[in-house]
Each structure stands twice: as structure tokens, then as C-alpha cells.
Design a protein around this nucleic acid. Structure first.
Lengths: 212, 212
DNA sequence: GGAAAAACCACACACATGTGCGGTTTCCAA
DNA sequence: TTGGAAACCGCACATGTGTGTGGTTTTTCC
């Protein structure tokens, strides 16, 4: 039995969703609220698995509601309810902790599927938004794989990583079983390759480029 | 008419897919290869919209194939074909430029849907993988929004940012119109707040936490 | 088999940094 | 109105860092 909570200000939609959920075997609506505040107040005593949360709510926005709800109950699976698939809003909500979303006109069968999906650890969303997420994902994650232009040797990367962990030259030398002068040598080369002149700048550049 | 190319070493699967695609109105298989190399050689003359690419190929791996294919034709929509939903492999492929994937046992109807989806700019994938992508996405993207716990004052952030740009104490002092000793003082406080003891560690931590 | 690249080692010296201590002024909120 | 936080300033000293120079050995690749 999947226990669902609804937070949605439109009475018709809220009650319609509740009726659908309660009318389906295996699903149960354990709470329905018209704004975030009262939902958040009840969280501690709600045995919820999945939360359907409208984004455009009066008072506290659904995004802030997600953040606060996740703080209290990190294991909650929160699905946004939106009218349009505005990628910026969806992004923000995903970052806030939502695990997927539903457009409000989603047919009942798919809606129930999505709830089950979320409960099973999935992230139900349209493949259009998924594509946008992936595009951003690639930009940030992909760096580790490509970016062979600034080629640091693996040894140099080790040194730089150790440096970013707060080790000084002597400590790096001890860790890598080399002499301090060799560490110094590697760092000199790292500076040359990255076109920098200090530890901080090197570390900043390396992290931003995804090298370390 | 969606023009599809298949790269898959298993003859049965490859020919099955081709037959399915050619047998469906609106779809056409314009090429079928058993390994990356010959597919890549033909790319320039192939009017392809969507590519189905097996990951576990003999010779060049599907991942490398994706990278090369994308270099030649960035607008290609490439769908991976996998047996298992191994998240590491799928991640790599997404970073390489794939826009989604299909498990090989996908029923024909869903397979055709996915191809259409990819062609329309979507990213067909299971919501389980989508969830994993989002989790990583959150880690990297979300930082800018949350993370107010480690509160550096705005002045301290200025100092730290300047430091990460490669300035030394004197240069930071000049830029912010304060004395070197004050810079020193700020950095001392930054170290205390971030629990670090060197520039590099502070910069690394700050960037990773999204503070600067 | 020879060249290139990577990793290794060493010394010297000016300068930057990290850390200890001491302080003042200003501003905001309890 | 008072106490705390932020921003500011100053001094002293041990240690770390950046840069120059000179090398050797091992691995990798054509």
C-alpha cells in the first residue's frame, strides 16, 4: 500500500486526485492540504511514502516546501505537480529534492504509474525534461571524461588532489613516497600546464575544469 | 519518416530491429552495422536521424563510437542498447553524447516510441536511471541554491574568490582597498569556519560546496 | 633501438604564508 | 544600551612556497 499526500490549492484537482488514489487498490491518500504550511506542520505524524506537491502555491512556494519537507524527512519521494513543463522551475524543484513531476493533465493511469515509480525509487518525468537535465548533467559531469586539452599526468593529478586536501609539500611527499623536491617539481609543472602561479589558483582551476 | 541506423554485433538482434523498423510506417532503417568502425566510416553519407548503438561491441566500444559519431554529426540522436541498466555505463554513455537508452528486451511498441521520442528531442530512459542522473545532477547543480550552513561573510567570500583567482595577499589587499594584515585576518577566519589550514584546502572546499 | 615523456632527486634563496597576540570602529538586534 | 558580529588595522616569527638551476632513471611509443 503506497501512502500518498497531496498539497494542492485547487480544491477540484486536490479532491479529484484524492478520490482517484483512494479508489485504487494499493494506493491510499493519507493527507490532503491546500498549502505548504499545514502540510509541513503535519509531516511528523504522517506515514507518507509519496508527496504530490503543487509548485504554484499561495504563501510558501512548493520549492521551499520541498526543501523543508526533505529536511524533516529525507526519504520522502516528492513529485511536483505543474501545469507547464517550464525547465527552469523543474530544475529548481529537482535541486530542491523533488524526484520527478507530473503535469496536471496527466491521465489517471499514468499518474498512478508515476506514483508507484517514485515509490520504487524512480524519477518519473517526460523524456523532454530528462533530456534537458542530461544536457546540464553532461556539462558538469562530462568534464571528468573529456577535457584532455589540459593534460596533467596521473602523478601530477595525485599531487594536486593531495594539495587540495590541505596537505603541505612534506605531507604530500610522505603520502606519495617521494621527496619534497619532487613534489615541488611536479607542482612547478602543474603551474606551467595550467598557466597559474599559486596553489589556490591551480586548485581552483583544476576543480572548475573537473580535472580533480 | 524517421531514419534509423543500427550498430549491433548480434546478427539476430540487429536484423530483428531492422525488420521491425522497416516494417513500421514512418520508420526506415537506413543502415545496419556490426561494429563501430564501419558505421563511423559511413556516417558522412548516411541520412540518419536516430542511431541505435550497442555498448558492448567488439573492437571500438560503443562509448568511443558515440564520442566519434557526435564529433562528426553533433545533431545525431544516439540511443544506447544495453542488456543491463548498469548506472556507471549509462552515465558514461550519456556524458559521451547519448541521449537515452533501450534495454534489449524492450517490447517493440515501446522501442518505436523511444526512437520517436529521441527524434523529437527527448531522452528516453527508465525512471530508475533518471533518478540516478538527477541525484548526481543535484549534487553539482543544487549547490548554488542551498548550502547556507557554512556561512562566510560577503567580505570573506570576496577574499576567498580573489585568492582562487591567483592573487596573493598583497594583491587582494590592493583590490579590496584594505591592508594585507586585514586580508590575513579574513583568511584566518575563513580557515576557522571551513575547518581548513591552507589556501588550497580552503579554495577546494569552497568550490566543492559552491560557496564561491 | 632511440626519442620523448614521466617520474624521480637535489640545492639555494627571496618571498609568501599561517599563526600567535594585541587592538578600534561601526552597525544591528536583543 | 549593550553586547555581538563584521570589518578594519598592526606586529612578530617560524615555516611553507615559488622559482631558478642542475641532474638520473624508467616507461612508453614510434
Amino acid at each position: 500500500m503506497i501512502k500518498v499526500v497531496i498539497t494542492e490549492d485547487n480544491n477540484t484537482i486536490r479532491e479529484g486526485l484524492a478520490a482517484l488514489i483512494n479508489g485504487t487498490p494499493g494506493y491510499s491518500c493519507v493527507g490532503a492540504f491546500s498549502e505548504c504550511e499545514s502540510f509541513l506542520a503535519k509531516i511528523p505524524t504522517l506515514p507518507a511514502d509519496v508527496v504530490l506537491m503543487d509548485i504554484g502555491l499561495p504563501g510558501m512556494s512548493g520549492i521551499d516546501g520541498i526543501v523543508k519537507a526533505k529536511k524533516m524527512r529525507p526519504e520522502l519521494n516528492i513529485l511536483m505537480l505543474t501545469v507547464y513543463e517550464d525547465s527552469q522551475t523543474v530544475f529548481k524543484a529537482l535541486c530542491a529534492g523533488a524526484c520527478g513531476y507530473l503535469v496536471k493533465k496527466t491521465p489517471p493511469a499514468r499518474l498512478l504509474d508515476a506514483i508507484k515509480d517514485a515509490n520504487d525509487g524512480g524519477a518519473p518525468m517526460s523524456s523532454l525534461i530528462a533530456r534537458q537535465v542530461i544536457d546540464v548533467f553532461k556539462q558538469t559531469q562530462g568534464k571528468q571524461n573529456e577535457e584532455k586539452d589540459t593534460e596533467l599526468s596521473s602523478r601530477e593529478k595525485e599531487v594536486l588532489t593531495s594539495l587540495s586536501d590541505g596537505n603541505n609539500y612534506q605531507e604530500i611527499a610522505d603520502r606519495l613516497f617521494i621527496s619534497v623536491d619532487t613534489v615541488r617539481h611536479h607542482i612547478k609543472n602543474i603551474y606551467r600546464k595550467l598557466h597559474v602561479h599559486s596553489q589556490s589558483e591551480a586548485v581552483a582551476k583544476a576543480i572548475r575544469k573537473g580535472i580533480i
